[in-house]
């Protein structure tokens, strides 16, 4: 499959369909994000273009400037047409970022690739394929999540005891937030005294992580990066996965499917757009 990706990338570059390909490059035994340009050396580097489930931060935010890598590139080179090798989750992240004005999808061409059954299992991914599949065979997602079932079978006091234990492990590294493709606010409430106490560990339970649970609730694309990033193994995805189900249930909404689909928090109760009507002067 990787050969097909490299071939198509070369084709896109040579035909000038894109000016550069943003992907992962094999480097020193590991991988790192890399911009393969249409120049001779960029094209010859394509042999090192690769994919990895260990490193999927292509569209993610860099700290401490809290700028999204892609949005930084697009601001610097607004006319550059970028090709991106993206798995299902990465494509969904791109859709949500575009929806929220972070990137310009017009200038992005997505090479959607399918994940293998093993990869899907590893990520417990419910949708291991992009909306627009270009390379690879689509495999079914993992349905059911024993963590969610276990949580839902608990009584309220048991749930509280569970989270009290889990959240007390938090060392406030902000890894979950920094790894999340949907966390791009410059002024993060998780750092503000008025929302959550500072200067103590564990951080205020459940306030500190509640901020993320709520703030990401309707935009979580279920990529699992937060849980992977957490050094103390807090099962963050249990809540985020369940919230993705809730969004379908409450608002018939799923994040990351189409840019035109407005977030339910930006529409009225009958799901018509709020912003437009207000600005056109009711």
């Amino acid at each position: 499959m990787i050969e097909n990706i490299r071939d198509l990338a070369r084709k896109w570059l040579e035909s000038k369909e894109v000016d550069a390909i943003f992907g992962l490059k094999e480097q020193d035994g590991g991988v790192a994000p890399y911009l393969f340009t249409g120049r001779v050396n960029g094209i010859s580097e394509l042999g090192k273009l690769t994919t990895s489930t260990q490193y999927r931060r292509l569209c993610y935010t860099c700290r401490p400037s809290k700028d999204n890598i892609l949005s930084l590139m697009q601001r610097r080179e607004p006319n550059m047409k970028i090709g991106i090798v993206a798995r299902g989750c990465e494509e969904r992240a791109l859709v949500e970022l575009a929806k929220r004005g972070q990137i310009d999808l017009e200038k992005i061409k997505i090479m959607g690739i399918a994940c293998s059954q093993e990869e899907a299992k590893e990520c417990k991914c419910e949708r291991p394929y992009p909306n627009n599949l270009v390379i690879g065979e689509r495999v079914e997602g993992v349905s059911g999540d024993e963590n969610i079932n276990a949580l839902l079978s608990k009584s309220l006091p048991e749930r509280l005891a569970f989270w009290r234990h889990e959240l007390s492990k938090c060392i406030k590294c902000y890894g979950c937030r920094d790894a999340c493709p949907m966390c791009f606010c410059k002024d993060c409430k998780m750092e503000q005294k008025i929302f959550t106490e500072t200067g103590s560990l564990p951080p205020e339970i459940p306030m500190f992580l509640f901020i993320r649970f709520y703030h990401i609730s309707e935009r979580c694309i279920g990529c699992g990066e937060c849980e992977k990033a957490c050094p103390v193994d807090i099962p963050l995805l249990t809540i985020f996965r369940q919230l993705r189900r809730d969004m379908k249930d409450l608002f018939d909404y799923e994040a990351g499917i189409a840019v035109e689909q407005e977030s339910p928090l930006l529409t009225t109760l009958d799901e018509s757009p709020m912003r437009k009507e207000v600005t056109s002067g009711v």
Binding site: K154, L156, A161, W163, L243
Partner: peptide, 11 residues
Amino acid sequence: ILERILGYLGI
């Protein structure tokens, strides 16, 4: 949304 999250957290 808040209601759901509170429930999952045990509140």
